[in-house]
Computed example of a mutant assay.
Amino acid sequence: MSEILDHLPKQRRKKNTKALLAYGAMAVCVIFAGWYIGNILFGARGLDVMLDLHAKREQLSKQVSELQQENAKLQKDYFELIGLDPERN
């Protein structure tokens, strides 16, 4: 009977060790997944940076359009002034 009792704690230690290793491996996987997702969302090539760049591109496109319209108006004014100046003809 003592042989059975001596054998029992060794099995429990093996099970506890396996469970501890499994929990450790899961913890490492969870930490890695958290780091990876955080890097995707907020890293150098992340979603946050991409959305900021998209907004900046739209703002610059609007600014270019406004400057083109202003340039066209100023060119029109310039050519009208040249046409009215008799010394330049």
Rank of each mutant, 00 (worst) to 15 (best):
K15F: 03
R12D: 00
K15C: 00
Q68R: 13
L21C: 06
G38Y: 15
G43L: 07
Y36G: 03
G83E: 01
E80T: 07
F79V: 05
Y36A: 10
D48H: 11
Y78S: 03
A19T: 11
E80M: 10
A22G: 01
E66H: 06
V49C: 07
E87N: 13
Q59K: 14
M26D: 09
T17E: 04
Q68L: 13
K76A: 13
V49T: 15
F79Q: 06
R57G: 10
L53Q: 11
G38I: 15
D77Q: 11
H54D: 11
R88Q: 02
K56E: 12
I4Y: 09
N39K: 11
S2C: 10
R13S: 06
H7E: 09
T17D: 01
P86H: 01
C29Q: 10
K73E: 04
Q11K: 11
N89S: 08
F32Q: 08
L5S: 02
D77P: 00
L53E: 14
G46A: 13
L84H: 09
N89F: 09
S65Q: 14
D52L: 08
A27N: 02
I82A: 09
V49M: 14
L21I: 05
S61N: 15
F32T: 14
Q63Y: 05
Y23W: 08
A33D: 07
K76H: 13
L47G: 06
Y36R: 09
T17I: 10
A22N: 02
E87D: 15
Q11W: 09
F42S: 12
L47Y: 15
V49H: 11
F79D: 04
K14R: 04
A44Q: 15
I82M: 11
L60F: 11
F32M: 12
I40K: 03
Y23R: 10
Y78F: 01
E70I: 05
K73P: 00
L67W: 13
K18M: 07
L47K: 12
N39Q: 09
R12A: 01
V64S: 09
I31A: 05
G24Q: 03
D6Y: 06
S61R: 14
K10F: 06
Q11I: 14
K76C: 08
F79T: 05
E66C: 00
H54G: 07
G34I: 06
R88N: 01
E70S: 05
L51N: 12
K56Y: 10
K10V: 07
D52M: 11
K76E: 14
H54K: 14
A19L: 15
L8S: 07
Q69N: 08
K14F: 01
N16A: 03
Q59F: 13
I82C: 07
E66W: 03
Y78I: 01
E58R: 09
E87R: 11
Q69K: 03
L60M: 13
A33N: 06
I4E: 10
M1E: 08
E80G: 02
I31S: 04
G83D: 02
N89M: 07
A27Q: 02
Q59R: 14
A72M: 11
A44E: 15
M1F: 07
L53H: 08
A19K: 12
V28K: 00
D52V: 06
Y78K: 00
K62M: 09
E87V: 13
I4V: 15
P9G: 03
M1N: 08
L21G: 01
L74E: 12
N89P: 04
L5N: 04
I37E: 03
K10E: 06
K15I: 02
Q59T: 15
F79K: 05
R57I: 15
F79A: 03
F42A: 13
H7T: 04
L5T: 05
